[in-house]
Amino acid sequence: MSGLQYMKGVRTRFYNKLLKEIQNVKEILNTDLSDLFDVDEYKQLRQRVLEAKLSINLYNDKLMMQSEKLSQAIDDSDIIEEASTLYHKLQIFEDTLQESKETEHNKIEKKERALSLAVVTEEMKTMFEAQMELQRVLVESKRVKKDTVKLPKIDIPSFNGNKLYWIEFWDSFENSVHKNDSLSDVDTFNYLKSKLTGDSRNAIIGLTLSNTNYSVAIEILHKRFGNRQETIDSHYKALMDMNPARNSLENLRQFIDKVEKHLRCLEVLSQDTNQDIFVSMIRRKLPNDGLLQIEIMKGAGKSGQ
Rank of each mutant, 00 (worst) to 15 (best):
E68G: 14
I205R: 11
K20L: 07
E250R: 12
R246P: 00
I79T: 04
V268I: 08
N162Y: 04
V144K: 08
I108V: 11
I22Q: 04
V268M: 07
I156A: 03
E168Q: 13
Q254M: 12
L90C: 11
T148W: 07
P152R: 15
D289G: 15
N24D: 09
L207V: 02
G301M: 10
Q229M: 06
S182F: 15
S71P: 02
E140Y: 07
Q44P: 00
L292G: 08
M64C: 15
I218N: 00
N30W: 05
K125V: 06
V259A: 05
K179C: 04
L86Q: 07
S67I: 08
F93R: 04
W166S: 01
T31Q: 04
G304Y: 12
S141P: 02
P287M: 15
E99W: 06
S234Y: 02
M281F: 08
T231W: 05
V49Q: 13
V25E: 03
L134I: 10
V279W: 13
K8E: 05
E112F: 14
G304R: 11
T12S: 07
L286R: 07
Q131E: 13
Y6R: 06
K110F: 08
K26I: 04
E104N: 12
L164W: 00
L33H: 00
N213M: 03
K8F: 06
V120P: 07
F93N: 03
L86W: 07
I282V: 13
E122L: 08
F169D: 00
E219P: 00
L249W: 09
S34C: 01
F169V: 00
L18C: 02
H105L: 15
S172G: 01
A245H: 01
I277D: 09
N60E: 10
L292S: 11
L86P: 04
S280G: 05
E27A: 07
S77Q: 06
E174W: 05
K17Q: 08
L63V: 06
I56N: 06
F278L: 00
E109R: 08
G304T: 09
Q66E: 13
D61R: 11
S280W: 07
E122G: 09
L196P: 04
I220P: 01
S100E: 09
Q131R: 15
D155Q: 09
T208I: 07
K163C: 12
K153A: 15
K223R: 11
K110P: 01
S200R: 02
S55F: 11
H222W: 01
